[in-house]
Write a protein that binds this DNA or RNA. Structure first.
Lengths: 197, 197
DNA sequence: GTCTATAACGAGATAGAC
DNA sequence: GTCTATCTCGTTATAGAC
């Protein structure tokens, strides 16, 4: 048995490739990098994902789908808007704790070099996040856990942008606590939390 | 005269390479891309910048130095803290108007693939921005144009992160107005501007 | 001092074996 | 259906001509 049985090679490839994209960028890794980690050859990978763009699209879809699941879970399990926003912040914090950047944040920077299907997936990720936050903020305004200073849509856009940027800064400084501080600061001000000062 | 006289080839290279990095990332362009634009060969570029890492470091230093000059100009020409923050926002808006991303924001995402001198320059850029903002916010608190909800340092970090993220989102959506909205929203809340609601 | 010719390597991809 | 052997091209870099 020269190699452990591989029941789901495609998923193995996706997991390794996702980490590489989230740390090095789509143009910062090669099939060879993935191959060496899972113990195969670059050429073998082409059976599972014919082109690098195909692999990239699968990565985006997998990430979007995973994030969507986490958002649904937050909505069904947590009672009020403000608590849900903290859980949303924790999703980002978890990514940083694994020493990665948001897959779609990384790809957003490189978007000019990507195929149209990948672009659509990345833009869709942010739109989906904004829509979820918009609803969550509206819910929070209604249940009294939030007093947003501006409209739900504008507040939602500020949160996604603010979180992605805080993540990028924390990532480049290798300091997840920096994200936590900035995210809590933003959430407090955007949602009218009096705890600030 | 097969080719126009070239008085400053190095600067020509830097200008083209900077645009390529700011739109495609450091791992998304090659010497060949630069060479074709300025009408020379990839190999010729190696005389001016021996390695790609050398070119990258020169790009960071040039960008940091240019931004530093703009910050100094804002401080000497504008009277109060709040007005200076608007001018700071306009620096980002100018980059987006030229259909580019912040050079250091782009490189921050790719930082794991870069040399140590480049990394230091990128981290230094953000630290320099935070320090300038910190002073500007302190000035604004003193001159009455700002009522920051939290400490100058924390506010400064939130602005840099918030602006970089808003820029990334506006960039990937190809919509500079989106940055303008988010940036003004953040500035208003962070600096205690009552104009919001 | 500046660029040309060319090397050495790594990238993504293909054809066909099993 | 899955992987091996191989290919072609693009990439960074060097050596040496001018």
């Amino acid at each position: 048995m020269p190699r452990p049985a591989r029941t789901n090679t495609a998923e193995e490839i996706l997991e390794v490739a996702s980490r590489l994209v989230q740390t090095r960028g789509f143009n910062g890794f090669s099939y060879a990098d993935v191959a060496v980690e899972i113990g195969t050859t670059p050429a073998a990978l082409h059976y599972h994902f014919a082109t690098k763009a195909d692999l990239g699209l699968a990565l985006v879809q997998r990430y979007v789908s995973g994030f969507r699941g986490a958002l649904d879970e937050i909505r069904t399990s947590l009672p009020d808007g403000r608590t849900r926003l903290d859980a949303y912040r924790d999703l980002y914090l978890d990514v940083l704790a694994r020493r990665r950047l948001c897959l779609c944040g990384m790809l957003a920077a490189e978007i000019a070099t990507l195929t149209e299907p990948m672009r659509a997936g990345i833009v869709g990720f942010f739109d989906d996040n904004v829509a979820w936050l918009e609803q969550t903020i509206a819910d929070g305004n209604a249940d009294g856990s939030i007093r947003a200073k501006r409209g739900p849509r504008e507040t939602a856009e500020a949160i996604v942008g603010g979180f992605e940027g805080a993540m990028l800064l924390a990532w480049s400084h290798d300091d997840p606590a920096r994200f936590r501080r900035a995210a809590d600061h933003l959430l407090a001000l955007l949602t009218g939390d009096p705890g600030g000062k």
